[in-house]
């Protein structure tokens, strides 16, 4: 059988991802995680000295803490299998990527294992976040300097 012929057969046999179901599940779980985040935010605003603008930081940290508990007990991967991007895209997913790598590499020690592999999945998010922020800010700086836009 020729390669092209086989690839045709493979296309016919392989089931397509259930697009609608997957998007719906991602939407629901992602929305739910953000709603929980909103509740945490409200908690910090009411009981601590945070404003709506500053509550984002403690909220994010708290969500990552939840991610640690769920990751440690092996529940985050189950949520992930169900929700896909719904649990990967919120900051809890970033936490899960860092924490799961840390737990995984504990057997190689804290320095070489945990330290060396902490960002092996989440590193790309840090890389592209920082680099894109740099270029966006640089472009805006240039545009402001030549007077096209203002701060």
């Amino acid at each position: 059988m020729e390669k092209e012929q086989y690839q045709q057969l493979e296309q016919n046999v392989t089931p397509k991802p259930p697009y609608f179901k997957n998007v719906a599940k991602a939407f629901l779980v992602g929305g739910l995680i953000c709603t929980i985040g909103q509740a945490v935010s409200l908690f910090y605003i009411i009981f601590f000295d945070f404003t709506e603008a500053t509550a984002g930081n403690p909220t994010v940290a708290t969500m990552v803490f939840f991610a640690m508990i769920l990751t440690g007990f092996g529940l985050y991967k189950k949520i992930g299998q169900f929700a896909g991007a719904g649990s990967a895209v919120p900051v809890t997913g970033f936490g899960n990527a860092v924490i799961s790598a840390a737990i995984e590499h504990r057997s190689e020690g804290l320095v070489l294992g945990v330290g060396g592999n902490l960002f092996k999945l989440a590193g790309s998010v840090v890389l592209f976040g920082v680099v894109s922020a740099f270029f966006v800010a640089l472009i805006k700086f240039i545009l402001v300097t030549i007077g096209v836009v203002s701060w």
Partner: peptide
């Protein structure tokens, strides 16, 4: 609004994964 906006951003991520065939790493980046 938190539910809907958060949900929509995640739904976009899911589309990038399923339609765009991106890995989770590529999607998040």
């Amino acid at each position: 609004f938190a539910f809907f906006v958060g949900g929509i951003i995640c739904a976009i991520g899911q589309l990038l994964m399923d339609y765009g065939k991106l890995t989770p790493g590529h999607t998040l980046s």
